[in-house]
Amino acid sequence: MAALLPRVKRVSVVAGALLALWALSFGLSYADLGRVALPIALAIAVTKALLVVLFFMELLHERASMKVALVAALVLAATLIGLMVADVATREDAPPQSSPRTPS
């Protein structure tokens, strides 16, 4: 019971950080950042995801078996996405334009 207060405090601090990053990302979306807009938005997303995984999902103090399960999945997903990106990046021609789009 004595340990409750610091634990609730930790959850609140992480929640505050998540909402601050959310506000930062939302604010930046109105700035005209051009080509770096997406990398910055994704970097903020990765930071938020890390906060959730390490503190809310408690991976920081979790056993090695869980960490291995996550890292294995991430390596497999990175291989999958990496090969897809490599395919797209090295194609000589883009595929033909598809379906007619509805007027906007």
Binding site: V8, S12, A15, L18, L19, W22
Partner: peptide
């Protein structure tokens, strides 16, 4: 959704 994650984390602690 961020808020809901915080709530369920707090619920586990409680």
């Amino acid at each position: 959704l961020l808020g809901s994650s915080a709530l369920v984390a707090a619920s586990v602690e409680m």
